[in-house]
């Protein structure tokens, strides 16, 4: 079986800084993979390479066996990749409904389109017409994250990249986000970057640790959390406190 996403020796340099260094990553269809790593480990750069926002300096990105690293972001999106950015990237001046409508409008028309928008908005808790008419920039950070997740879900992507989907959320909001992501995962392969370890332990089966642009280790969450070397580079004090 060909992997949903595979990178072969992917490298991304910004001047003298090697943000992503010879990364070979393989994510199977239907998987929910977590990517962790300390600040500056190259997680966001890796996402930008995968989605075509940054041209890799070397190596290849394959999606279902097809080389995609030379395509434009909108072409990669059309092949079935959706991304939630680290800083919520929504249409600030437009209404909540319009945001999700725009995401769904590429693939759907007419009644089916309205049905998808309604369904996706309800899934993230925007049920009333009043809530849907609000402008995106009037919403809280957590709600904007959800709108972006709803936009992503409305695209019905084959693979979704989520960059810190639970950042700045309360415990309840975080738990709800976990449920949302699990729902999306029923039909979509997901690669998620997070710092919140509780969030990751609730979600992930398999975790990849990135360190200084390289893959440090790849294992289950329980093994990762017992891995002394990982603890040293990343989990460190915070994890011991959580214990």
């Amino acid at each position: 079986m060909t992997a949903m996403i595979e990178t072969v020796g992917l490298t991304c340099r910004f001047g003298g800084v090697v943000a992503v260094d010879n990364v070979s990553l393989k994510i199977e269809e239907g998987e929910l993979r977590c990517l962790i790593g300390p600040n500056g480990a190259g997680k966001t750069s890796l996402f930008k390479c995968l989605s075509g926002q940054v041209q890799p300096s070397g190596g290849r990105v394959l999606m279902k066996g097809r080389e995609i690293s030379r395509f434009h972001p909108h072409e990669i999106a059309r092949m079935g990749m959706a991304i939630k950015m680290q800083v919520p990237s929504v249409f600030n001046g437009l209404s909540v409904h319009e945001n999700v409508w725009l995401a769904a409008a590429r693939l759907h028309r007419g009644k089916a389109l309205e049905a998808i928008v309604d369904e996706t908005l309800s899934a993230v808790g925007f049920r009333s017409a009043e809530a849907r008419e609000k402008r995106a920039d009037e919403l809280s950070h957590a709600h904007r994250q959800w709108i972006e997740l709803a936009m992503l879900a409305a695209c019905k992507p084959a693979i979704a990249l989520l960059d810190e989907p639970a950042a700045g959320m309360t415990q309840d909001e975080m738990l709800r986000t976990v449920e949302l992501i699990k729902t999306i995962n029923r039909s979509t392969t997901i690669l998620v970057v997070e710092h919140d370890l509780e969030f990751i332990s609730l979600l992930a089966r398999k975790v990849t640790v990135l360190h200084q642009g390289k893959i440090f280790v790849e294992d289950t969450m329980s093994n990762i959390s017992n891995n002394a070397a990982v603890r040293e580079i990343y989990l460190g004090k915070q994890w011991r406190m959580a214990q």
């Binding site: 926002q53 909108h74 950015m85 001046g93 319009e98 590429r106």
Partner: peptide
Amino acid sequence: TRLGRIMASVRENERRCELLGYDP
């Protein structure tokens, strides 16, 4: 129209528009 609404999204956030699969 659909086209006009997508055009407005270019103004709001070109990168997001692109990542949704439209060509700004």
